[in-house]
Computed example of a mutant assay.
Amino acid sequence: MAFEPPQRLVRALGETAPAGDDWLARLSETAERTVARRELTVERVQVPGGRSSLVVLVRRADGTPAVLKLAPPRARPESERAALAHWDGRGAVHLLDADAEEAEEGVLLLERLHPDVSVRSLPEAKALLEAAGTLRRLWVEPPAGHAFETVAERTGRQAGAMRAGALAEPGTAPLVEAALTAREELLAAPPEHRLLHGTFRQSKVLAGERMPWLAVGPDPVVGESAFDLARLVRDRVEDLIAAPSGASITRRRIKRLADSLEVDLERLRGWTLFRAVESGVRALRVGRDKDAELLLEFAGWL
């Protein structure tokens, strides 16, 4: 069958594709070759799918349902593979195949969850509770000799892009400066070094069979828990912005999440600020002005 990538994926990868990158052009051929090699039966491509990989619902030769995921090198699939192997199904989707040759191609074969049922489908308070409980299970000691990126390394790369963004959009300069100052203070004395999901939010938590909720799609990083939790704080940001008391709701959410997961409130607030500004500046850079406006207004509340 032809593996047509969803338009959401095409648009998202187009925003970040380096010059000369032909991963999307080769995707259908790669998927066909992988399906044949693993003797998989294809059910359908997941639509709208994610923003960094092609997700295909398949069945293995013995009839077991599974998910085939293909990701370009810039999505760091080898890092996702290593994290999923370390978690071994505890709080996260189970990695079904650790074939080294396939890993080089950015191919993952995963446990089938319920792809259309995320924790985001729950009422907001319940969704936050379930998501936070799932996230807690992922915060473990990283494996010895790991090669995961650290929070300091990842945010260092992002800081450079944020400074450039502030030069291009001077109106963002005060928020960028506040976010960069917060980062420097937070990195001065990190309280712990845990393996983190890296891109955790409600839509990354899917319903499963062996556990009610399991995390998918990590971009793992090693650092403090507050960094991971910070992305969850701004979930449903469009609803927060639309609410007359959005700023108050946000402050209460930060306190509730910090208390429930035993994370320092001020450190969570600082990382929430940094991550919201970084995402907002990045959205401006690629022309997603509406997203940028929401994120930067949210950051202004912090």
Rank of each mutant, 00 (worst) to 15 (best):
G156V: 00
R252V: 07
L229Y: 02
R201L: 11
L95G: 11
A243L: 04
T172N: 04
E80N: 06
R154S: 12
A152M: 00
W301Q: 02
M1C: 07
L110A: 12
T155C: 05
V117N: 10
P220F: 05
R137G: 07
V151N: 03
D239K: 15
R59H: 13
A17S: 06
T16I: 15
V151I: 04
A161D: 08
Q46T: 00
I249D: 14
G217K: 01
R38A: 08
V67R: 07
V286L: 01
T155K: 02
E124P: 06
G49M: 01
P73Y: 09
T155A: 02
G20R: 01
E102I: 00
E78L: 15
V67T: 12
E278N: 11
E104G: 15
P218F: 10
E169Q: 11
F200T: 15
L68M: 07
E192Y: 13
R38L: 15
V93G: 10
R44E: 02
V47I: 00
W87P: 05
G145D: 08
L96C: 06
E43I: 03
G287M: 08
A159L: 01
A61Q: 14
R285V: 09
L9V: 03
L96G: 06
V233Y: 02
L122M: 05
L108E: 05
R210G: 09
V45C: 00
L257S: 11
